Amino acid sequence: MEKSASTSGKHDNLIRAEVVTTPEQLLHAYAIRAICFLEEHGVPARQTYDGNDYQATHIIVYAEDEPIGTARIRWFKDFAKMERTSFRKAWRDPRTIKKCAEFIFDHISRKGYDRVITHAQPTYARLWRSLLGFRPVPNKDPLYFEGHDEPYLELIKELNPPKNAITADSDTAVLFRIEGQWDDRSEFEARRT
């Protein structure tokens, strides 16, 4: 049974965000996006799923073992772009959204990025600004998509990469490890004394 938004805050310890690393997790992310974009907002499938899905890092959010939210991160030279963020209706509360966003911000900054950009319609842009600390990007025109009544506004958030951010100077083994599991020794790493 799905938790209601009013009770989800009481169950914060049941909510976890993860980097997608398995086909099952990716199917869960796509299912959430289908519910939110295709069914709720009427976004065409060709726009909901695109070629960028194959070059992106996907995030999946679970309440216990039930998928409740997802986001996609794309990587550019000096910034990351957070997009396709969606949560099932019953889990659209500030605590859940913030917990997911903080996981994403930590992931982005661990990779050494100090900026994340997103695009949102005005209603959601207010949420991104007030809840997550984004600010409007000056001198950028809004973007309109066919079939959408409102424009998409560009927003930016500054991040502080940690001291252990992944860089060209990172330990070689770290560069071989699975995305987001950089501190976990791979089962394939030889143990040398």
Rank of each mutant, 00 (worst) to 15 (best):
E2D: 11
S4F: 12
A5S: 14
S8A: 14
G9W: 06
G9M: 08
H11M: 13
N13G: 00
R16L: 11
A17V: 09
E18W: 01
V19T: 07
V19N: 01
T21M: 04
P23D: 10
Y30Q: 10
I32A: 02
R33G: 09
A34F: 07
I35T: 12
F37V: 02
L38W: 01
L38T: 05
L38N: 06
V43R: 09
V43I: 15
P44D: 03
A45H: 10
Q47P: 00
Q47W: 11
Q47F: 14
D50I: 02
Y54L: 09
Q55N: 12
Q55L: 07
A56W: 03
D65C: 08
G69D: 05
T70G: 12
T70W: 02
W75P: 00
W75L: 03
W75V: 01
F79Q: 07
F79G: 00
F79E: 05
A80L: 03
R92P: 03
D93A: 14
P94R: 08
P94A: 15
R95A: 08
T96D: 03
I97N: 05
K98R: 15
K98I: 08
K98G: 05
A101K: 00
I104W: 01
I104A: 02
S109R: 10
R110E: 03
G112R: 07
D114I: 05
A120W: 05
Q121E: 15
Y124K: 06
A125E: 04
R129M: 14
S130Q: 13
P136E: 13
P136A: 07
P136L: 13
N139T: 04
K140F: 06
D141E: 12
P142F: 12
L143H: 06
Y144W: 12
E146S: 14
E146V: 13
G147C: 06
G147M: 11
D149M: 07
Y152M: 12
L153A: 04
K157I: 03
K157M: 05
E158L: 08
E158G: 02
A165P: 01
D171P: 05
D171I: 13
A173E: 03
V174Y: 10
R177A: 06
E179A: 05
G180Q: 11
Q181F: 13
W182L: 02
D183H: 14
D183Q: 14
E189R: 10
A190K: 08
R192V: 12
